[in-house]
Amino acid sequence: MKHSVVTPISREMVESFRAGDRVYISGKIYTARDQAHLRLITDEAPNFDLQDAVIYYVGPTPPRPGNPIGSSGPTSSYRMDNLAIPLMKRGLRVMIGKGDRSKLFIEEMINNRAVYLIATGGTGALLASCIKSSRVIMYEDLGTEAVHELIVENFPCFVAYDIFGGSIFFDKDKS
């Protein structure tokens, strides 16, 4: 199934997602990876509303003049497994990254009615074409790891884990 959604993403919207579905996201999303997560979990007043927000795990290449951003593919999500939990408890609804995640993360994701999407890793050139603007809104000293507010159009993802326990990944137990 295909979903075209505009951020922020509601709980009801997430409930309609099933693992393997195509999701095209438009609107504002926020970037954060390891170091930004470390700070966000103790930051009581971040510069964006976490409620129903979308966080994209990415550290882009520098933009060429005239472009809003450089190559912008997802980084490995497992490094943010534990750090994402307190953010989901504060309303974070959608995380975009690549690769599988821990059992604990999945449990907490389901408990908090959040969802994990993947974009195809290593396709930063392709994904950059869906990013219309980019500006740093927090933690500028982190450079590529700073929190950027991106405006995206039809940013292509797949539902990796849904709130019913479904997964897009190959079945490790079956193999």
Binding site: T61, N67, S71, T120, G122, G124, A128
Partner: peptide, 17 residues
């Protein structure tokens, strides 16, 4: 598709260079 776009020299293949 990604490598076709990257070939034009504007966006690197992957952000992790």
């Amino acid at each position: 598709d990604n490598q076709e776009i990257a070939k034009h020299g504007e966006y690197p293949l992957c952000q992790d260079t």
